[in-house]
Design a protein around this nucleic acid. Structure first.
Length: 531
RNA sequence: GAGUCGGUAGCUCAGUCGGUAGAGCAACGCCCUUUUAAGGCGUGGGUCCUGGGUUCGAGUCCCAGCCGACUCACCA
């Protein structure tokens, strides 16, 4: 018998005994608690001499003959329990002996302070509320240090529930991320925006430069794609005279995984009619300030400094979202930091020459836009620690943004940067249907030249524009990236509850390797049939 | 996609030159009525990621594969 099997047998035997004692750990449906663990800890001084009913999960047991101590956790806080045979009686004392680390438990008792000063509950009665069939790798903790808790990154991601139970830091980061989403909603709701939902399954997946996931809809015998952005449907709503709309939703891009990229991620896009870049900048400033205030209680957020060369210095930087963001022109800032004269940044040949002169490779550069984005990335981005807007982006990479009057090579677009990372992308939306059609045609030409990520033509969207769209500002923010920035996460998986992982093969399901591969082949066959 | 590193008990990790597989925690038994990474005595627990190869002998060396981590490249 393997260890896991024997442990399971032992746990099942304990459950059987608990049932004999009238303490079935799965029988109780509702436990009336007078206080949560957190309320008990925080209000401890005022709760003396009244019976408390508290529930949580046991994280450690210290049994000492005819007395025992245990730590009861609620995920955020813990309270120590004190059991004494003389106080609970023969039967419940046997129940105490049948408890395991990981059990859910409800207790009733009064407050007690131990000899060493620890706030505790002196248990008078207890009710098992669940018993795991596995030994949970919760480890032990002292002075904030954790020992032996589940730490392997792969196990943490694959069995996230164990990570949430065992690792308070991981738990806090994930919870903060959810609170960020909630705070974003609050801000937009309070500013007159309507939250909407648009299709995930699309025939034409547009609005961004990315490769979509393909799937098949049987009823219409039709290939469809998972959306890569929210943009075009939201602007169709603006055309429908819904003047302020936003959506927070999952988008899917069939690309690689890295510490900043997940194949599915959560996108926020919001569109506001009758406003321009200035209006959008004010919105972004307001949104970040409001989110920081709501989640962290301050507009100045302290996060670990991002420095790839020296990750463990422990240096922190204070990001101030209370002030208006710094604003720089893209060309001006590239020129200032690279030394290439601004005049040389307006045409492809001069820019390429300038790029070569500052020592960057130019073989793969085929457009002015590409060169400018490379120069931006190399010279400017690392300097943009405090919140900054970079204004004015080249037209080639901005097919949905209005042209700058008098400079057809540039668009009315800005990106926000924090900690050297892009955190938002916004522009004044094209509402001239003829201009938009030309931009799409340009993209289709790129696509035919082999750029799989260039935009497809979207006639339905163009029809909406031809029916009239008011001047509109739009903005997109990657919620996962936003959460990473605010929580100091180093990997996007740290702010995703269940990140994409390759399936484990031949393990854990009692399926033989040959059978497993046979199933794999059948699945692939079904896919081909679908496409 | 490329490079580097890793996979040993349920968890965290050692394992030297190729020579019987180790520790702590967790589990089980006994002692212990204010402990707190409780403590003491004892017991059980291994597909050393998988498959080949070299060898008298492989956790260790070689080859292939699987999974992961990190860095780089594309993208948000």
């Amino acid at each position: 018998m393997s260890l896991e099997e024997s442990l399971r047998e032992i746990r099942l035997a304990k459950i059987a005994r608990l049932r004999e004692l009238g303490c079935d750990p799965y029988a109780i449906e509702k436990f009336d608690m007078s206080h949560t663990v957190t309320e008990t800890v925080e209000g401890f001084e005022k709760l003396t001499d009244i019976p408390l009913r508290v529930a949580g999960r046991l994280h450690s047991m210290r049994v000492m003959g005819k007395a025992a101590f245990a730590d009861l956790h609620d995920g955020t806080n813990k309270i120590q329990l004190y059991f004494r045979k003389d106080d609970v009686g023969e039967t419940l004392w046997e129940v105490v002996g049948l408890l395991d680390i990981g059990d859910h438990l409800g207790v009733e008792g009064k407050t007690m302070v131990t000899r060493t000063g620890e706030h505790s509950i002196h248990v008078a009665a207890l009710w098992p509320l669940s018993k795991p069939l596995h030994s949970l790798p919760l480890g032990k903790a002292k002075d904030g240090e954790h020992y032996n808790a589940i730490a392997d990154t792969e196990l943490r991601y694959r069995h996230r529930h164990l990570d949430l139970i065992a690792n308070p830091e991981a738990r806090k980061m994930l919870v903060d991320r959810m609170l960020v989403t909630r705070a974003v909603r609050h801000y937009l709701d309070q500013n007159g925006y309507l939250e909407v939902e648009t299709p995930l399954l699309q025939v034409v997946a547009g609005g961004a430069a990315a490769r979509p996931f393909l799937t098949h809809y049987n009823a219409y015998e039709m290939d469809v794609k998972l959306r890569i952005s929210l943009e075009l449907y939201l602007k169709r709503l603006i055309c429908g005279d819904l003047p302020r709309v936003y959506e927070i939703g999952r988008v899917f891009r069939n690309e690689g995984i890295s510490n900043r990229h997940s194949p599915e991620f959560t996108m926020l896009e919001f569109y506001e009619a009758y406003t321009d870049l200035e209006g959008m900048m004010a919105r972004v400033e307001g949104l970040f300030r409001s989110v920081a205030q709501e989640v962290f209680g301050t507009s100045v957020v302290s996060v670990p400094m991002r420095d790839e060369r020296d990750e463990e210095t422990g240096a922190f930087v204070e990001l101030d979202f209370g002030k208006p963001w710094r604003r720089v022109g893209m060309l001006d800032e590239i020129s200032r930091l690279s030394g290439i004269p601004v005049d040389n940044l307006h045409d492809y040949e001069s820019a390429k020459a300038g790029m070569a002169k500052v020592g960057l490779p130019t073989e793969n550069e085929h457009s002015l836009g590409g060169i400018l984005e490379k120069l931006l990335e190399h010279f400017v981005e690392p300097t943009l620690i405090q919140p900054t807007f970079v204004v004015g982006y080249p037209i080639e990479t901005s097919p949905l943004a209005k042209k700058v009057p008098g400079d057809p090579s540039m668009t009315r677009r800005f990106e926000g940067y924090v900690l050297g990372r892009e955190v938002c992308n916004a522009f004044s939306e094209i509402n001239d249907p003829v201009d938009q059609r030309e931009r799409f045609e340009q993209q289709v030409a790129e696509r035919e030249k082999g750029d799989a990520e260039a935009h497809p033509m979207d006639e339905e969207f163009l029809f909406a524009l031809e029916c009239g769209m008011p001047p509109t500002g739009g903005c997109g923010i990657g919620i996962d990236r936003l959460a990473m920035t605010l929580t100091g996460a180093r990997h996007i998986r740290e702010v995703l509850l269940f990140p994409m992982m390759r399936p484990e093969r031949d393990r854990g399901f009692g399926v033989s390797p040959s059978r497993n591969e046979g199933e794999l082949r059948r699945d692939e066959g079904a896919c081909e049939e679908g496409e």
